[in-house]
Every structure is written in structure tokens, then in C-alpha cells.
Simulated assay, not measured.
Amino acid sequence: MRGGILHLPPGTQLGTATDTQVERLNEVNRAIHRRLMDEGRWHLHQFTLLDDPGHIRRGAVLARCGSCLASSAS
């Protein structure tokens, strides 16, 4: 499976997220990444994404997990 994931916590205001909401979004997504890596079933590459289109907030830097690949040790 290839693709990307980005969890949006409840209350995230799409297009107009505050600095606090963007940081909370990044914290949650980093925690998801850490947990998946610790479990050892999945391999994900984490990278940042500049929100040029303004889906969360134009210009925000988002921590995102992408390139989801199941590990062979399932």
C-alpha cells in the first residue's frame, strides 16, 4: 500500500487553523508515527509538508506520515 496519512483531531479548523491547532496536529501525527514504528508491523517514512494550498492553513508546516508499507514481519 502506498499513500499518506494525516490525522485531523476534532476541532481543527480547516483552512484557518491557529498556530496552536497546527502544533497539536503535528504532535498527534508524530505520536501516531512513533506508535506504529514501535509496534513494528508497519514501516512509514515521516516527512514535513508545506500547506501551500491552505487545506489546514496556508503556509503551515505539517508533520505527515507517508509511504505506508506493511512490513514482512506481520
Rank of each mutant, 00 (worst) to 15 (best):
R2L: 10
R2H: 07
G4R: 05
L6V: 05
H7R: 08
H7M: 11
L8F: 14
P9H: 03
P9R: 02
P9D: 04
P10Q: 06
G11M: 06
T12P: 03
Q13S: 11
L14T: 08
G15C: 10
G15Q: 09
T16E: 03
A17F: 01
T18G: 01
T18N: 00
T18E: 01
D19Y: 00
T20E: 11
Q21H: 01
Q21E: 06
Q21I: 00
V22R: 01
V22C: 03
V22S: 02
V22E: 03
V22N: 04
E23I: 03
E23T: 07
R24V: 05
L25W: 07
N26G: 11
N26I: 10
E27Q: 09
V28M: 09
V28A: 14
V28E: 12
V28Q: 08
N29A: 06
R30V: 09
R30W: 09
I32A: 03
I32V: 05
H33R: 06
H33P: 00
R34G: 04
R34D: 08
R34M: 02
R35S: 10
M37A: 04
D38T: 10
D38I: 06
G40M: 04
G40N: 03
R41S: 12
R41I: 09
W42E: 10
H43Y: 06
H45L: 15
H45W: 13
H45T: 15
F47A: 13
F47W: 08
F47M: 10
F47E: 13
T48H: 00
L49V: 12
L49Q: 12
L49S: 11
L50N: 02
L50C: 01
L50I: 04
D51M: 02
D51V: 03
D51Q: 02
D52F: 02
D52P: 00
P53R: 05
G54T: 12
G54A: 13
H55K: 15
I56N: 12
I56F: 12
I56W: 10
I56C: 13
A60Q: 09
V61G: 09
L62F: 12
L62I: 15
A63T: 14
R64G: 12
C65R: 11
C65W: 08
G66S: 13
G66D: 13
G66M: 10
S67R: 14
C68I: 15
L69G: 10
L69K: 13
L69R: 13
A70V: 14
S71I: 11
S72L: 14
